[in-house]
Design a protein around this nucleic acid. Structure first.
Lengths: 134, 134
DNA sequence: ACAACTATATGCGGTTCACATCTAGATGTC
DNA sequence: GACATCTAGATGTGAACCGCATATAGTTGT
């Protein structure tokens, strides 16, 4: 159901479960983190946060899911870190495929950036010209 | 929505069913079209295409779904066009709420644009600095 | 003993979207 | 007439994304 509660209005697809709210960001964010420093999942969250100046905070559960999927797809490899104290860690490394995909993501994100720009320009000018004709 | 052509395997979340591939674009695109010219659904597709210089092509089925959902939410109103030849047309008009939401979408799209920019910058610089150290 | 933190993982549900398919009226062609 | 095609609206299906909650362990601090 689409009940956002009383007096609480839905705005621009922001909210729980809105998968497409920002588009697929977790995968490219994970790739970015892994390109700059391989490591374990929990830490990658911090790397992502740092890389993006705190703009992008990924959900831990979602990140683990994405990492496992990427492993299935041969984009990363993992192994349990040995001889360490603390909880078990699964260390991830990028594969060559993963590195290639990361490069593709750059172009893809630029394209997405442009689409958002084109659309917001269109919206803005439409709203603007409407005002003048009133 | 967009035709990525044949022979394009999974890359950067492009493909069927990837809901979040580019984020929610149909709703804001529909709003943009309706701000600049109210009309019926099938025609709004063309308006969207024109507004975005052919960059954004929405799926007809998806557009109708979005329009009906927006009507449920009070963002648009519709009525069957009368006294016309051809197939029945449902004419849509923006409500005041819809106009407000359109304005919100501008800011939201700008934010999304920035996020994509931040992330692609991060990815690019990570890939770049990796190359130098090799 | 208990709380808090690190680390990995699953469950759940809502949402977006592309592709295929369906109905139906209008129009054109052979 | 039979047919293909275009316009117009609509549903079915299923993949994928994501936020939030919760579960499980080990570690560290009080």
């Amino acid at each position: 159901m689409r009940d956002y509660g009383p007096g609480h209005r839905r705005c621009c697809g922001v909210g729980r479960g809105r998968g497409g709210g920002r588009g697929a960001l977790v995968e490219p964010a994970a790739l970015a983190a892994l390109v700059s420093s391989s490591g374990h999942g929990y830490d990658l969250r911090r790397v992502i946060e740092e890389l993006t100046d705190g703009e992008i905070l990924v959900d831990a559960g979602g990140l683990y899911r994405v990492l496992r999927r990427m492993e299935e797809e041969g984009l990363v490899t993992s192994n349990w870190a040995e001889g360490e104290s603390g909880p078990q860690r699964r260390e991830y490394q990028l594969t060559e495929d993963g590195r290639e995909l990361a490069a593709h993501w750059v172009a893809h994100l630029r394209e997405r950036e442009r689409l958002a720009s084109v659309l917001s320009d269109a919206l803005e000018s439409a709203l603007g010209s409407e005002k003048t004709e009133k």
